[in-house]
């Protein structure tokens, strides 16, 4: 099956007529690149991260199926909702987190210059969608009536305030340079000109750091710091609900890696879609290497240190390239 053509066709259809229930979009949402594909790749990338960190720490590390085993084990376990918790918010948070992450996958191009459901201003929707899992866990943590959950949620909130500025500023830099708010246009512009990793390295670094914070990887595993806060906002979650959070984390992991590739070093595209996807996955694996090195050689930051780090260091990085982009456009 040639996904490429089907997708192009589908894309046009959606823009023409959004009210028609489209079976292709359901397939995109649930199988490729949505739930099943993104979750599988996400869990594999998380395994790669764990394995690399383990090797740096002189350990053997987990087998390749470990993340799947963890997920399926949780799926068959009982979910306990604390008696004092706000039941609806507590349960809903995990579903909201998963659905937002899945929908976001439709807006991120994988191995091509077009996302599966692109439209004018999709990058703004993407920024919102990607912040929903963080908001969901803040709600879940604060509704769990657990002091560790509450402290974890407040830390997550502070961390979000810290990294969102850098994240949005670096994306805006590219949008200004490409002159479009469509992620597809940003990719196309790079394919025909020069990749943004070379033109805007500072924005790339800022984005890379913000992604680590968004994924809560050491040194930014502040909200669920296990030696301080048990599991932070996730403390009261168990069984299937926790499995959903794990899954949305995996999808988010793959989604953010894909976004980094699309925004900063997309292409070259071979034209055969399946090869393009494989190249894309290879690039994802390569990004995991610097992330694992940073996670292995750093202790966890304190929340106030993280705030200072993002608002000063990361903000300056992103602002420098933002100013350059503005100057280029004006000139």
């Amino acid at each position: 099956m040639n996904f490429y053509n089907a997708r192009e066709k589908n894309h046009l259809q959606i823009i023409e007529d959004r009210d028609i229930v489209n079976w292709w979009s359901l397939f995109h949402l649930l199988v490729f690149p949505g739930l099943i594909f993104a979750a599988t790749i996400g869990l594999l990338l998380l395994w790669l991260l764990r394995k690399l960190i383990a090797r740096f720490q002189w350990r053997v590390g987990p087998p390749i199926y470990q993340c799947f085993a963890d997920f399926f084990k949780l799926l068959f376990k009982e979910s306990i909702v604390p008696a004092d918790a706000n039941r609806i918010v507590f349960i809903l948070a995990s579903f909201v987190s998963l659905s937002a992450a899945t929908v976001a996958m439709l807006l991120i191009p994988i191995g091509s210059s077009q996302p599966f459901q692109g439209f004018m201003g999709d990058i703004i929707v993407l920024i919102y969608l990607l912040s929903i899992p963080s908001i969901a866990i803040i709600l879940g943590g604060s509704s769990s009536s657990n002091p560790f959950g509450a402290v974890g949620a407040s830390r997550e909130m502070v961390l979000m305030i810290a990294y969102e500025i850098g994240l949005i500023l670096s994306i805006l830099t590219l949008a200004i340079d490409a002159g479009s708010l469509m992620i597809g246009d940003i990719v196309k512009y790079q394919v025909s000109n020069q990749i943004y990793l070379i033109r805007y390295p500072f924005a790339a670094v800022a984005f890379f750091i913000c992604v680590q914070a968004k994924l809560g990887i050491t040194p930014f595993d502040i909200p669920d710091a296990k030696t301080e806060l048990i599991a932070g906002p996730y403390t009261e979650y168990s069984g299937r609900l926790l499995a959903l959070f794990k899954l949305s984390h995996a999808i988010l992991f793959f989604g953010l890696m894909s976004m980094m590739i699309s925004l900063f070093f997309p292409g070259p595209f071979t034209g055969v879609y399946i090869f393009d996807v494989l190249i894309h996955l290879l690039k994802c694996s390569i990004i995991v290497i610097p992330i694992s090195i940073i996670a292995a050689v750093n202790p966890r930051l304190k929340i106030n240190h993280a705030l200072r780090f993002f608002w000063i260091f990361v903000f300056i990085l992103a602002a420098v390239d933002f100013a350059r982009a503005l100057l280029l456009v004006i000139a």
Binding site: Q57, W58, D221, V297, N298, P299, R300
Partner: peptide
């Protein structure tokens, strides 16, 4: 101490 501050690499190396 390494483990407490989230520096698991120090934990592994020290225990080695």
């Amino acid at each position: 101490a390494g483990h407490i501050i989230g520096f698991d690499t120090l934990l592994m190396w020290a225990w080695k």
